[in-house]
Design a protein around this nucleic acid. Structure first.
Lengths: 257, 257
DNA sequence: TCTTGACTCTCACCTTACGTCATAGACTAT
DNA sequence: ATAGTCTATGACGTAAGGTGAGAGTCAAGA
């Protein structure tokens, strides 16, 4: 039977000696035995248990719960995991909010310094071209466009600003992703995230789904049209940028008209 | 000049009195003045500073840094925000990994755990009719059906019951809506709400989207087929009821096979 | 055998940003 | 005057260890 000293076990598992002391004290991981001089000696079983402990610690379980899980065979592990999962999701949402706030703060502070003028936003997309897109969209989606505009008008000014910010970020992500890898699923993810944004502002309102579907359909209209996606018979590397701008223009128009 | 007591300020800002004590002690927010009895009195300026403090606290800055930011006009705020942002992004990535790990662990633990008798679920739909629907569905959606079944088997018994209840309610709403107005958008809303339910039970799992899409497609299959929607060349008033039962049967079968 | 250096033991205080008493004094309304 | 509310300070507790202090233990070289 092989034994490990505190330091050996600590090194093996990548934790500190103090950590093992704490686990011993907490009854979470007792040494297999002690020498006459009270040195802690751990065996294979303890090593395995430590692996388990570290696994749950990775999942951010508090030590008390880890002990409960490992010691009580009746413990409803699955329920605990699910509970923990929802807690993590809450944290993640909070982090997302924080990141958005930080982004806004940064861009607010940089106002004037790096601010995008509307001209820059539409850069490469001349007014008449943009107008043409809008006409095309309204011709194909007339009613939907109107209903979308109604829904948008129901937002408060503050929400309107937030919505614009989030959508802008989403489009920028799309453009950046497709710039780095034109074959990626970025468009799908973009639309999926668009759903998320829409839901956030209109909740379960059935208008949300209509709006999102209409938007997705509008994007699809461009995506399906080789006049936009291809250049000389090959994928147009500028398509992502174009799509971003076109959709942005469409939304801006819908939001403000 | 208006002054606020500790409690007034605390209530205004939504923090505890103790928090204000701590901030005073830390030199982060000193009261404008003190009464003879040493009561802390805060003015407008302090209120504004408190807003600032809470803003940075929202961004998870430690109090020491907040003090540095607010007291040192030379502090490079934008750099600090950017630095902080990347830290938050790291945390968020870690959370995502954790959530994935939890999902994997849950499904690993639930493997093979769940079985159920199909008999009680066929209620209201004769066996041979039901079997025919299922055959049609699997013929058209073979692979998707199998994947869906996998996902469904991973639910706990408790969740399974809840899912059944919510889906049943959703179908009943559909049937009732279409009964009153066969031309309504009820099917779209039904599918949209189905998305919501699915997300609730599978959360971040990407299977959720596949499941929902497949379900939507299956419904569309019936909706597009005049054999079901029409009767003697006119809209079939029983279609909603039929669809409800067919979809119900399909899901039940997927849940139990 | 003695000494040196590495290892180990337990005790105990420190960390964040407060929460939660405890005790004592201050203010307000009846 | 008295009850009820508000305030002050001080002290202890939290999670999961970090960082020593002081003392004992072990293996190896001189």
């Amino acid at each position: 039977m092989k034994y490990y000293s505190v330091q050996q076990l600590a090194t093996l598992a990548g934790v500190s000696v103090r950590t093992l002391h704490v686990y011993d004290e907490a009854g979470l991981l007792k040494p297999a035995t002690r020498t006459e001089a009270k040195y802690r000696m751990y065996g294979e079983k303890e090593l395995l248990r430590l692996q388990q402990i570290l696994f749950y610690k990775e999942l951010d379980f508090p030590l008390q719960e880890i002990r409960a899980i490992l010691d009580d065979p009746e413990f409803d592990l699955i329920e605990a995991l699910k509970h923990h999962k929802s807690a993590l999701q809450t944290r993640q949402e909070r982090l997302t909010t924080l990141l958005t706030t930080i982004d806004k703060t940064i861009s607010h502070l940089q106002e004037g310094e790096f601010q995008m003028t509307p001209e820059e936003l539409y850069e490469g997309l001349p007014k008449e071209t943009a107008e043409a897109y809008r006409k095309e969209a309204t011709a194909k989606w007339g009613d939907a466009v109107k209903r979308s505009e109604e829904a948008l008008r129901k937002l408060s000014k503050a929400d309107f600003g937030k919505l614009k910010d989030e959508m802008k970020a989403n489009w920028q992500t799309l453009a950046s992703m497709m710039h780095h890898d034109p074959t990626s699923d970025a468009v799908q993810e973009h639309i999926a995230h668009h759903y998320v944004i829409i839901r956030k502002f209109w909740g379960t309102d059935s208008l949300a789904d209509k709006q999102a579907k209409q938007y997705a359909g509008l994007g699809q209209m461009y995506i399906d049209d080789p006049r936009y996606t291809e250049l000389d018979g090959k994928p147009n590397p500028e398509f992502a940028v174009f799509l971003s701008k076109a959709m942005s223009y469409f939304a801006e128009t819908a939001l403000t008209s």
